[in-house]
Design a protein around this nucleic acid. Sequence first.
DNA 1: TTAAATCCTACTAAATTTATGGGAAAACAG
DNA 2: CTGTTTTCCCATAAATTTAGTAGGATTTAA
Lengths: 202, 202
Amino acid sequence: MKLSKKGEYALRALIDLGIAGEVGRELVQVTELSDKESIPAKFLEQIMQELKTAGIVVAQRGKFGGYHLARPASEITIGSIVRLIDGPLAPIGCVSHTAYEKCSCPDEEHCGLRMLMLDVRNAIAGILDRYTLADVVEVTLRKLRRDAVPLPFASPRPAARGQPVKSTVASRRTARTARVAAPRRLAPVEGLLSQLLPDYTI
Amino acid sequence: MKLSKKGEYALRALIDLGIAGEVGRELVQVTELSDKESIPAKFLEQIMQELKTAGIVVAQRGKFGGYHLARPASEITIGSIVRLIDGPLAPIGCVSHTAYEKCSCPDEEHCGLRMLMLDVRNAIAGILDRYTLADVVEVTLRKLRRDAVPLPFASPRPAARGQPVKSTVASRRTARTARVAAPRRLAPVEGLLSQLLPDYTI
DNA sequence: TTAAATCCTACTAAATTTATGGGAAAACAG
DNA sequence: CTGTTTTCCCATAAATTTAGTAGGATTTAA
Protein backbone atom coordinates (compact mmCIF):
# COMPACT_ATOMS: atom_id res chain seq x y z
CA MET A 1 0.00 0.00 0.00
CA LYS A 2 2.91 2.27 -0.68
CA LEU A 3 3.17 5.78 -1.97
CA SER A 4 6.07 6.02 -4.42
CA LYS A 5 9.02 8.31 -3.85
CA LYS A 6 7.86 10.24 -6.88
CA GLY A 7 4.47 10.75 -5.32
CA GLU A 8 5.99 11.75 -2.02
CA TYR A 9 8.32 14.21 -3.75
CA ALA A 10 5.44 15.72 -5.68
CA LEU A 11 3.42 16.22 -2.52
CA ARG A 12 6.34 17.70 -0.63
CA ALA A 13 7.11 20.13 -3.41
CA LEU A 14 3.48 21.18 -3.73
CA ILE A 15 3.15 21.66 0.01
CA ASP A 16 6.24 23.86 -0.17
CA LEU A 17 4.68 25.87 -2.97
CA GLY A 18 1.60 26.24 -0.81
CA ILE A 19 3.68 27.46 2.10
CA ALA A 20 5.54 29.83 -0.19
CA GLY A 21 2.26 31.27 -1.39
CA GLU A 22 1.07 31.69 2.15
CA VAL A 23 4.27 33.53 3.09
CA GLY A 24 4.07 35.91 0.16
CA ARG A 25 6.65 34.30 -2.03
CA GLU A 26 5.59 34.32 -5.69
CA LEU A 27 7.99 31.87 -7.28
CA VAL A 28 10.10 28.99 -6.05
CA GLN A 29 12.78 27.32 -8.10
CA VAL A 30 13.39 23.61 -8.44
CA THR A 31 16.82 23.85 -6.83
CA GLU A 32 15.35 25.47 -3.75
CA LEU A 33 12.75 22.76 -3.43
CA SER A 34 15.20 19.97 -4.06
CA ASP A 35 17.63 21.43 -1.52
CA LYS A 36 15.00 21.87 1.15
CA GLU A 37 13.50 18.42 0.73
CA SER A 38 16.65 16.53 -0.27
CA ILE A 39 15.18 15.50 -3.59
CA PRO A 40 17.44 14.83 -6.62
CA ALA A 41 17.12 18.04 -8.62
CA LYS A 42 16.76 16.55 -12.07
CA PHE A 43 14.19 14.08 -10.83
CA LEU A 44 12.14 16.82 -9.25
CA GLU A 45 12.43 18.82 -12.48
CA GLN A 46 10.68 15.96 -14.28
CA ILE A 47 8.00 15.79 -11.64
CA MET A 48 7.36 19.51 -11.88
CA GLN A 49 6.90 19.11 -15.62
CA GLU A 50 4.20 16.55 -15.06
CA LEU A 51 2.51 18.78 -12.52
CA LYS A 52 2.68 21.64 -14.99
CA THR A 53 1.22 19.56 -17.82
CA ALA A 54 -1.58 18.51 -15.50
CA GLY A 55 -2.35 22.15 -14.74
CA ILE A 56 -1.46 21.93 -11.07
CA VAL A 57 1.45 24.35 -11.15
CA VAL A 58 2.43 27.22 -13.40
CA ALA A 59 6.00 27.76 -14.51
CA GLN A 60 7.83 30.98 -15.13
CA ARG A 61 10.77 30.34 -17.43
CA GLY A 62 14.05 32.18 -17.60
CA LYS A 63 16.22 33.84 -15.04
CA PHE A 64 14.52 34.33 -11.66
CA GLY A 65 11.83 31.99 -12.88
CA GLY A 66 10.28 29.17 -10.91
CA TYR A 67 6.97 27.59 -10.07
CA HIS A 68 3.83 28.46 -8.22
CA LEU A 69 0.48 26.74 -7.73
CA ALA A 70 -1.92 27.18 -10.62
CA ARG A 71 -4.95 27.38 -8.32
CA PRO A 72 -5.59 28.17 -4.68
CA ALA A 73 -4.20 25.41 -2.50
CA SER A 74 -7.71 24.83 -1.18
CA GLU A 75 -8.79 23.65 -4.61
CA ILE A 76 -6.10 21.01 -5.01
CA THR A 77 -6.95 17.77 -3.26
CA ILE A 78 -4.23 15.40 -2.17
CA GLY A 79 -6.11 12.60 -3.87
CA SER A 80 -5.90 14.25 -7.27
CA ILE A 81 -2.14 14.53 -6.95
CA VAL A 82 -1.64 10.96 -5.78
CA ARG A 83 -3.82 9.71 -8.62
CA LEU A 84 -1.89 11.78 -11.14
CA ILE A 85 1.51 10.53 -10.05
CA ASP A 86 0.83 7.08 -8.63
CA GLY A 87 -2.40 6.00 -10.27
CA PRO A 88 -5.66 4.87 -8.68
CA LEU A 89 -6.07 4.87 -4.92
CA ALA A 90 -7.81 1.49 -4.92
CA PRO A 91 -5.74 -1.49 -3.72
CA ILE A 92 -7.10 -3.62 -6.58
CA GLY A 93 -8.47 -2.56 -9.95
CA CYS A 94 -11.95 -3.98 -9.51
CA VAL A 95 -12.79 -1.46 -6.77
CA SER A 96 -11.32 1.63 -8.41
CA HIS A 97 -13.78 4.46 -9.08
CA THR A 98 -11.51 6.32 -11.46
CA ALA A 99 -9.91 3.36 -13.26
CA TYR A 100 -12.03 0.25 -12.88
CA GLU A 101 -10.51 -2.93 -14.20
CA LYS A 102 -11.99 -6.39 -14.13
CA CYS A 103 -10.14 -8.57 -11.68
CA SER A 104 -8.99 -12.14 -12.05
CA CYS A 105 -11.59 -13.64 -9.77
CA PRO A 106 -14.23 -15.72 -11.54
CA ASP A 107 -17.23 -14.17 -9.79
CA GLU A 108 -16.92 -10.52 -8.87
CA GLU A 109 -20.45 -10.36 -7.52
CA HIS A 110 -19.79 -12.90 -4.78
CA CYS A 111 -16.26 -11.87 -3.94
CA GLY A 112 -15.83 -11.04 -0.28
CA LEU A 113 -12.33 -9.77 -0.87
CA ARG A 114 -13.72 -7.21 -3.25
CA MET A 115 -16.08 -5.89 -0.59
CA LEU A 116 -13.24 -5.57 1.86
CA MET A 117 -10.99 -3.81 -0.59
CA LEU A 118 -13.81 -1.49 -1.51
CA ASP A 119 -13.95 -0.46 2.13
CA VAL A 120 -10.21 0.15 2.07
CA ARG A 121 -10.47 2.18 -1.10
CA ASN A 122 -13.25 4.26 0.36
CA ALA A 123 -11.28 4.84 3.54
CA ILE A 124 -8.24 6.02 1.60
CA ALA A 125 -10.23 8.17 -0.80
CA GLY A 126 -12.26 9.51 2.10
CA ILE A 127 -9.10 11.03 3.47
CA LEU A 128 -7.10 11.93 0.38
CA ASP A 129 -10.07 13.41 -1.49
CA ARG A 130 -11.20 15.32 1.59
CA TYR A 131 -8.03 17.15 2.39
CA THR A 132 -6.40 19.71 0.19
CA LEU A 133 -2.95 21.21 -0.01
CA ALA A 134 -4.31 24.11 2.02
CA ASP A 135 -5.13 21.79 4.90
CA VAL A 136 -1.67 20.30 4.99
CA VAL A 137 -0.10 23.73 4.64
CA GLU A 138 -2.21 25.03 7.49
CA VAL A 139 -1.26 22.18 9.79
CA THR A 140 2.39 22.56 8.92
CA LEU A 141 2.44 26.31 9.45
CA ARG A 142 0.59 25.98 12.72
CA LYS A 143 3.15 23.56 14.05
CA LEU A 144 6.07 25.67 12.87
CA ARG A 145 4.62 28.78 14.51
CA ARG A 146 3.79 26.95 17.71
CA ASP A 147 7.44 26.00 18.07
CA ALA A 148 8.67 29.37 16.81
CA VAL A 149 10.54 27.79 13.95
CA PRO A 150 11.54 30.32 11.26
CA LEU A 151 9.23 29.89 8.30
CA PRO A 152 10.72 28.70 5.02
CA PHE A 153 10.62 30.87 1.88
CA ALA A 154 10.54 33.92 4.12
CA SER A 155 13.10 35.92 2.11
CA PRO A 156 11.37 36.69 -1.16
CA ARG A 157 13.56 37.17 -4.20
CA PRO A 158 12.39 39.82 -6.65
CA ALA A 159 9.66 38.20 -8.70
CA ALA A 160 10.06 37.87 -12.44
CA ARG A 161 7.45 39.92 -14.24
CA GLY A 162 6.84 38.27 -17.61
CA GLN A 163 3.21 39.10 -17.18
CA PRO A 164 2.87 41.50 -14.27
CA VAL A 165 2.20 39.69 -11.04
CA LYS A 166 -0.38 40.58 -8.42
CA SER A 167 0.89 42.49 -5.45
CA THR A 168 2.21 40.49 -2.55
CA VAL A 169 -0.50 41.67 -0.21
CA ALA A 170 -3.32 40.91 -2.61
CA SER A 171 -2.14 37.40 -3.31
CA ARG A 172 -1.70 36.73 0.38
CA ARG A 173 -5.31 37.70 0.98
CA THR A 174 -6.72 35.39 -1.63
CA ALA A 175 -4.51 32.52 -0.61
CA ARG A 176 -5.42 32.82 3.05
CA THR A 177 -9.14 33.08 2.63
CA ALA A 178 -9.66 30.64 -0.23
CA ARG A 179 -9.95 27.58 2.01
CA VAL A 180 -12.96 28.96 3.77
CA ALA A 181 -14.71 29.63 0.47
CA ALA A 182 -14.61 26.04 -0.77
CA PRO A 183 -16.98 23.87 1.29
CA ARG A 184 -15.95 20.31 2.06
CA ARG A 185 -17.83 17.66 0.20
CA LEU A 186 -17.52 14.54 2.30
CA ALA A 187 -18.59 13.56 5.77
CA PRO A 188 -15.95 14.11 8.43
CA VAL A 189 -13.66 11.30 9.44
CA GLU A 190 -11.99 10.86 12.76
CA GLY A 191 -8.27 11.36 12.49
CA LEU A 192 -5.41 13.55 13.49
CA LEU A 193 -5.96 16.09 10.77
CA SER A 194 -9.65 16.43 11.48
CA GLN A 195 -8.74 17.19 15.09
CA LEU A 196 -6.28 19.83 14.03
CA LEU A 197 -8.65 21.29 11.46
CA PRO A 198 -11.91 21.24 13.42
CA ASP A 199 -13.72 23.72 11.19
CA TYR A 200 -15.26 21.29 8.75
CA THR A 201 -18.77 21.87 7.52
CA ILE A 202 -21.03 19.00 8.57
CA MET B 1 -1.59 2.32 -2.88
CA LYS B 2 -1.66 -1.03 -4.56
CA LEU B 3 -1.93 -4.55 -3.27
CA SER B 4 0.43 -6.79 -5.23
CA LYS B 5 -0.81 -9.72 -7.26
CA LYS B 6 1.05 -11.92 -4.84
CA GLY B 7 -0.83 -10.42 -1.93
CA GLU B 8 -4.12 -10.75 -3.76
CA TYR B 9 -3.38 -14.38 -4.62
CA ALA B 10 -2.47 -15.16 -1.04
CA LEU B 11 -5.70 -13.65 0.23
CA ARG B 12 -7.82 -15.43 -2.36
CA ALA B 13 -6.21 -18.76 -1.57
CA LEU B 14 -6.64 -18.28 2.16
CA ILE B 15 -10.27 -17.26 1.76
CA ASP B 16 -10.77 -20.42 -0.25
CA LEU B 17 -9.18 -22.46 2.50
CA GLY B 18 -11.53 -20.75 4.93
CA ILE B 19 -14.52 -21.63 2.78
CA ALA B 20 -13.27 -25.18 2.43
CA GLY B 21 -13.02 -25.49 6.19
CA GLU B 22 -16.52 -24.12 6.57
CA VAL B 23 -17.87 -26.65 4.08
CA GLY B 24 -16.20 -29.58 5.77
CA ARG B 25 -13.34 -30.05 3.38
CA GLU B 26 -10.12 -30.90 5.21
CA LEU B 27 -7.46 -30.38 2.56
CA VAL B 28 -7.24 -28.39 -0.64
CA GLN B 29 -4.47 -28.80 -3.17
CA VAL B 30 -2.59 -26.05 -4.91
CA THR B 31 -3.86 -27.07 -8.34
CA GLU B 32 -7.45 -26.77 -7.17
CA LEU B 33 -6.83 -23.32 -5.78
CA SER B 34 -4.91 -22.17 -8.84
CA ASP B 35 -7.62 -23.51 -11.13
CA LYS B 36 -10.46 -21.89 -9.22
CA GLU B 37 -8.77 -18.51 -8.95
CA SER B 38 -6.81 -18.55 -12.22
CA ILE B 39 -3.51 -18.21 -10.46
CA PRO B 40 -0.31 -19.62 -12.03
CA ALA B 41 0.16 -22.88 -10.16
CA LYS B 42 3.88 -22.63 -9.55
CA PHE B 43 3.54 -19.09 -8.33
CA LEU B 44 0.83 -20.05 -5.90
CA GLU B 45 2.98 -22.94 -4.73
CA GLN B 46 5.65 -20.44 -3.70
CA ILE B 47 3.10 -18.32 -1.92
CA MET B 48 1.75 -21.29 0.00
CA GLN B 49 5.28 -22.06 1.14
CA GLU B 50 5.59 -18.59 2.57
CA LEU B 51 2.25 -18.92 4.30
CA LYS B 52 3.32 -22.27 5.69
CA THR B 53 6.63 -20.89 6.94
CA ALA B 54 4.74 -18.07 8.61
CA GLY B 55 2.49 -20.56 10.36
CA ILE B 56 -0.68 -19.46 8.63
CA VAL B 57 -1.38 -22.71 6.82
CA VAL B 58 -0.43 -26.32 7.44
CA ALA B 59 0.65 -28.62 4.64
CA GLN B 60 0.02 -32.29 4.22
CA ARG B 61 2.58 -33.77 1.83
CA GLY B 62 2.22 -36.69 -0.50
CA LYS B 63 -0.64 -38.14 -2.46
CA PHE B 64 -4.02 -36.69 -1.49
CA GLY B 65 -2.15 -34.01 0.41
CA GLY B 66 -2.88 -30.32 0.37
CA TYR B 67 -3.24 -27.32 2.66
CA HIS B 68 -5.54 -26.14 5.38
CA LEU B 69 -5.54 -23.15 7.71
CA ALA B 70 -3.29 -23.54 10.74
CA ARG B 71 -5.70 -21.65 13.01
CA PRO B 72 -9.38 -20.77 13.01
CA ALA B 73 -10.12 -18.26 10.29
CA SER B 74 -11.34 -15.88 12.98
CA GLU B 75 -7.83 -15.63 14.36
CA ILE B 76 -6.15 -14.65 11.11
CA THR B 77 -6.47 -10.96 10.35
CA ILE B 78 -6.28 -9.70 6.81
CA GLY B 79 -3.72 -7.16 7.95
CA SER B 80 -1.31 -9.82 9.13
CA ILE B 81 -1.42 -11.49 5.73
CA VAL B 82 -0.97 -8.28 3.78
CA ARG B 83 1.96 -7.31 6.01
CA LEU B 84 3.54 -10.72 5.56
CA ILE B 85 3.33 -10.69 1.77
CA ASP B 86 3.42 -7.01 0.87
CA GLY B 87 5.11 -5.36 3.82
CA PRO B 88 3.89 -2.50 6.00
CA LEU B 89 0.44 -1.02 5.48
CA ALA B 90 1.69 2.55 5.88
CA PRO B 91 2.02 4.61 2.69
CA ILE B 92 5.38 5.96 3.85
CA GLY B 93 7.90 4.49 6.26
CA CYS B 94 7.80 7.27 8.82
CA VAL B 95 4.20 6.45 9.80
CA SER B 96 4.54 2.68 9.93
CA HIS B 97 3.78 1.09 13.30
CA THR B 98 5.35 -2.26 12.48
CA ALA B 99 8.34 -1.05 10.43
CA TYR B 100 9.11 2.58 11.17
CA GLU B 101 11.76 4.17 9.01
CA LYS B 102 13.00 7.74 9.13
CA CYS B 103 11.83 9.65 6.12
CA SER B 104 13.74 12.06 3.94
CA CYS B 105 12.06 15.18 5.21
CA PRO B 106 14.29 17.43 7.30
CA ASP B 107 11.83 17.96 10.12
CA GLU B 108 9.53 15.08 10.90
CA GLU B 109 7.97 16.88 13.82
CA HIS B 110 6.57 19.69 11.70
CA CYS B 111 5.64 17.64 8.66
CA GLY B 112 2.01 18.04 7.69
CA LEU B 113 2.30 15.32 5.09
CA ARG B 114 3.30 12.91 7.80
CA MET B 115 0.16 13.69 9.78
CA LEU B 116 -1.98 13.09 6.73
CA MET B 117 -0.29 9.82 5.88
CA LEU B 118 -0.64 8.72 9.48
CA ASP B 119 -4.38 9.18 9.09
CA VAL B 120 -4.28 7.10 5.94
CA ARG B 121 -2.26 4.39 7.62
CA ASN B 122 -4.67 4.29 10.53
CA ALA B 123 -7.64 4.10 8.20
CA ILE B 124 -6.13 1.17 6.30
CA ALA B 125 -5.00 -0.65 9.42
CA GLY B 126 -8.35 0.06 11.06
CA ILE B 127 -9.98 -2.04 8.40
CA LEU B 128 -7.39 -4.70 7.61
CA ASP B 129 -6.54 -5.37 11.26
CA ARG B 130 -10.19 -5.42 12.23
CA TYR B 131 -11.44 -8.02 9.79
CA THR B 132 -10.36 -11.61 9.71
CA LEU B 133 -10.54 -14.36 7.14
CA ALA B 134 -13.69 -15.54 8.91
CA ASP B 135 -15.42 -12.25 8.18
CA VAL B 136 -14.60 -12.38 4.49
CA VAL B 137 -15.58 -16.04 4.33
CA GLU B 138 -18.87 -15.28 6.03
CA VAL B 139 -19.71 -12.45 3.65
CA THR B 140 -18.79 -14.57 0.66
CA LEU B 141 -20.82 -17.58 1.79
CA ARG B 142 -23.80 -15.40 2.59
CA LYS B 143 -23.79 -13.96 -0.89
CA LEU B 144 -23.38 -17.33 -2.53
CA ARG B 145 -26.25 -18.79 -0.52
CA ARG B 146 -28.47 -15.79 -1.14
CA ASP B 147 -28.11 -16.35 -4.88
CA ALA B 148 -28.28 -20.15 -4.52
CA VAL B 149 -24.87 -20.57 -6.10
CA PRO B 150 -23.41 -24.06 -5.49
CA LEU B 151 -20.71 -23.78 -2.87
CA PRO B 152 -17.13 -24.52 -3.88
CA PHE B 153 -15.19 -27.41 -2.33
CA ALA B 154 -18.47 -29.18 -1.69
CA SER B 155 -17.26 -32.63 -2.85
CA PRO B 156 -14.70 -33.67 -0.27
CA ARG B 157 -11.96 -36.03 -1.36
CA PRO B 158 -10.91 -38.64 1.20
CA ALA B 159 -8.55 -36.91 3.59
CA ALA B 160 -5.01 -38.16 3.97
CA ARG B 161 -4.45 -39.46 7.47
CA GLY B 162 -0.79 -38.98 8.27
CA GLN B 163 -1.84 -38.00 11.73
CA PRO B 164 -5.51 -38.75 12.17
CA VAL B 165 -7.70 -35.78 11.40
CA LYS B 166 -10.58 -34.52 13.51
CA SER B 167 -14.03 -35.55 12.42
CA THR B 168 -15.74 -33.39 9.84
CA VAL B 169 -18.52 -32.46 12.21
CA ALA B 170 -16.19 -31.44 15.01
CA SER B 171 -14.04 -29.23 12.84
CA ARG B 172 -17.11 -27.59 11.35
CA ARG B 173 -18.32 -26.69 14.82
CA THR B 174 -15.10 -25.04 15.89
CA ALA B 175 -14.75 -23.19 12.65
CA ARG B 176 -18.27 -21.86 12.76
CA THR B 177 -18.28 -20.71 16.34
CA ALA B 178 -14.74 -19.44 16.67
CA ARG B 179 -15.53 -15.99 15.32
CA VAL B 180 -17.88 -15.30 18.17
CA ALA B 181 -15.29 -16.31 20.72
CA ALA B 182 -12.64 -13.78 19.64
CA PRO B 183 -13.76 -10.27 20.59
CA ARG B 184 -12.95 -7.42 18.24
CA ARG B 185 -10.34 -5.03 19.41
CA LEU B 186 -10.96 -1.81 17.54
CA ALA B 187 -13.81 0.64 17.35
CA PRO B 188 -16.24 -0.01 14.52
CA VAL B 189 -15.83 1.75 11.24
CA GLU B 190 -18.53 2.55 8.77
CA GLY B 191 -18.22 0.52 5.64
CA LEU B 192 -19.80 -2.16 3.57
CA LEU B 193 -18.43 -5.01 5.59
CA SER B 194 -19.50 -3.53 8.89
CA GLN B 195 -23.02 -3.30 7.49
CA LEU B 196 -22.96 -6.91 6.43
CA LEU B 197 -21.41 -8.04 9.67
CA PRO B 198 -23.40 -5.97 12.17
CA ASP B 199 -22.54 -8.06 15.21
CA TYR B 200 -19.46 -6.20 16.34
CA THR B 201 -18.83 -5.65 20.02
CA ILE B 202 -19.06 -1.97 20.97
C1' DT C 1 25.46 39.26 -24.29
C1' DT C 2 25.43 36.45 -20.46
C1' DA C 3 23.54 34.03 -16.61
C1' DA C 4 20.02 31.39 -14.77
C1' DA C 5 16.11 29.28 -15.01
C1' DT C 6 12.58 25.95 -17.25
C1' DC C 7 11.81 22.63 -21.09
C1' DC C 8 12.39 18.37 -23.58
C1' DT C 9 13.94 13.87 -24.82
C1' DA C 10 16.37 10.05 -24.19
C1' DC C 11 18.65 6.77 -21.60
C1' DT C 12 19.99 3.73 -17.66
C1' DA C 13 20.62 1.22 -13.48
C1' DA C 14 18.50 -1.06 -9.90
C1' DA C 15 14.84 -2.97 -7.64
C1' DT C 16 10.62 -5.31 -7.61
C1' DT C 17 7.17 -8.05 -9.40
C1' DT C 18 5.61 -12.00 -11.55
C1' DA C 19 6.44 -15.63 -12.63
C1' DT C 20 8.87 -20.56 -14.70
C1' DG C 21 11.65 -24.88 -14.38
C1' DG C 22 13.58 -28.97 -12.55
C1' DG C 23 13.98 -32.03 -9.66
C1' DA C 24 13.99 -34.13 -4.37
C1' DA C 25 11.27 -35.86 -0.67
C1' DA C 26 7.06 -37.56 1.30
C1' DA C 27 2.79 -40.17 1.47
C1' DC C 28 -0.28 -43.40 -0.17
C1' DA C 29 -2.51 -47.09 -3.24
C1' DG C 30 -2.06 -51.32 -5.09
C1' DC D 1 8.22 -52.66 -3.78
C1' DT D 2 6.55 -49.58 -7.36
C1' DG D 3 4.12 -45.93 -9.35
C1' DT D 4 1.54 -41.78 -8.66
C1' DT D 5 0.66 -37.60 -6.71
C1' DT D 6 1.53 -34.22 -3.90
C1' DT D 7 4.40 -30.72 -1.32
C1' DC D 8 9.20 -28.93 -0.82
C1' DC D 9 13.25 -26.46 -2.29
C1' DC D 10 16.19 -23.74 -5.06
C1' DA D 11 17.52 -21.43 -9.04
C1' DT D 12 16.58 -18.53 -12.76
C1' DA D 13 14.27 -15.34 -15.88
C1' DA D 14 11.18 -12.11 -18.03
C1' DA D 15 8.68 -8.00 -17.48
C1' DT D 16 7.57 -3.96 -15.27
C1' DT D 17 8.22 -0.21 -12.36
C1' DT D 18 10.99 2.85 -9.87
C1' DA D 19 14.25 6.16 -9.32
C1' DG D 20 17.01 8.37 -11.14
C1' DT D 21 20.97 10.76 -14.97
C1' DA D 22 22.55 13.28 -18.98
C1' DG D 23 22.70 16.76 -22.22
C1' DG D 24 21.24 20.19 -24.69
C1' DA D 25 17.39 23.63 -26.37
C1' DT D 26 14.65 27.50 -25.13
C1' DT D 27 13.24 31.42 -22.52
C1' DT D 28 13.81 35.48 -19.67
C1' DA D 29 15.89 39.24 -17.24
C1' DA D 30 19.79 41.88 -15.90
